[in-house]
Simulated assay, not measured.
Amino acid sequence: MKYFSLILYYGFAIYLPKSNRPYAFKITKPIRYHICKNILEYCGKNVNIERLVYFGDGQGISIGDNSGLGVNCKIQRNVKIGNDVMMGEDVMIITNTHNFENCDIPMRTQGLNYISVTIEDDVWIGSRVIILPGIKIGKGSIIGAGAVVTKDVPEYSIVGGVPAKLIRSRK
């Protein structure tokens, strides 16, 4: 069922219009949702996956209830997204890194290493944010548009910039 769903998603559903467009007839969101439930490791209730979202084969990806992935997001494997997470357009969540320990072997032949990313509940991620491998974004945080997240983000923090730095706490 997973492979059939992957064919349906990448061959058809990924190109459907944005879910809030009048000509989408309120069917694009449920179509993508039901297909992605068969692909992702876990897909909660009322998840919105917008058009052109790429998540490979869905391995190790879980998305909590009432969360959404913005248009053209790219998510690699081993990502846990909590409940009520809002994600803008063009967000990239990177979990793979090239191995480079052995200087006698070209890096491209040393293989990949996947380091998981965790996004806790009630997080707002602005457009064009890049989240690097191994990052944990704490509950209730806001990541400003265009930020590059290189370090863990504490709960209820607002961060932004390149690299992302604490702007202020929400509490």
Rank of each mutant, 00 (worst) to 15 (best):
V53D: 04
P30C: 09
I27C: 09
G64S: 02
Q76P: 01
F55S: 04
K2F: 03
P106W: 05
R21H: 08
I81V: 14
K151H: 13
I35Q: 03
E41R: 11
I143T: 05
D57N: 15
P22C: 14
V149F: 02
Y114R: 07
G140M: 01
N72Q: 12
H34A: 08
M87P: 01
V47S: 02
L8E: 06
E101M: 11
V148G: 00
I130L: 07
S127K: 01
R128Q: 15
T28N: 14
G126S: 00
R108I: 08
H98A: 11
G126R: 01
I61N: 07
G134M: 04
S141M: 11
E120H: 12
I94L: 12
R32F: 05
G70R: 02
Q76G: 05
G146D: 01
Y15C: 07
E89S: 14
D104W: 07
N113A: 04
M92L: 15
V149T: 02
I35K: 02
N48S: 15
I39T: 08
L166R: 09
N20Y: 15
N113K: 15
A147W: 01
A164L: 04
Y42A: 10
R108C: 05
L132K: 08
N66V: 12
I7P: 07
E50L: 07
I167F: 06
I125N: 00
S141H: 00
I158A: 05
G44I: 01
K171P: 09
K2M: 07
G138I: 04
I142Y: 10
Y9N: 02
V79D: 02
S67T: 04
Y10S: 08
I137G: 00
K18I: 12
T109Q: 12
V159L: 03
F100Q: 04
P154W: 04
I93H: 01
R51N: 15
C36E: 09
G126V: 02
G134S: 05
N113W: 03
V162P: 02
I142L: 10
V79Y: 01
G88W: 02
V149H: 01
E101T: 13
D90F: 12
K45V: 07
N72C: 13
N48P: 05
G60R: 10
R21E: 06
G144S: 06
I119V: 03
D104Y: 12
F4S: 11
T97C: 09
V91G: 06
R51A: 13
F12D: 00
R108W: 06
V123H: 01
Y156N: 15
Y156E: 06
D121S: 08
P154L: 10
A145Y: 03
K80F: 06
D90M: 08
I93V: 15
V162E: 10
I105E: 06
M107Q: 07
I142H: 04
L132G: 00
R77P: 14
I7T: 11
H98P: 10
R77D: 15
Y42S: 06
G126Y: 00
V71H: 14
S116T: 11
Y10E: 04
S127Y: 02
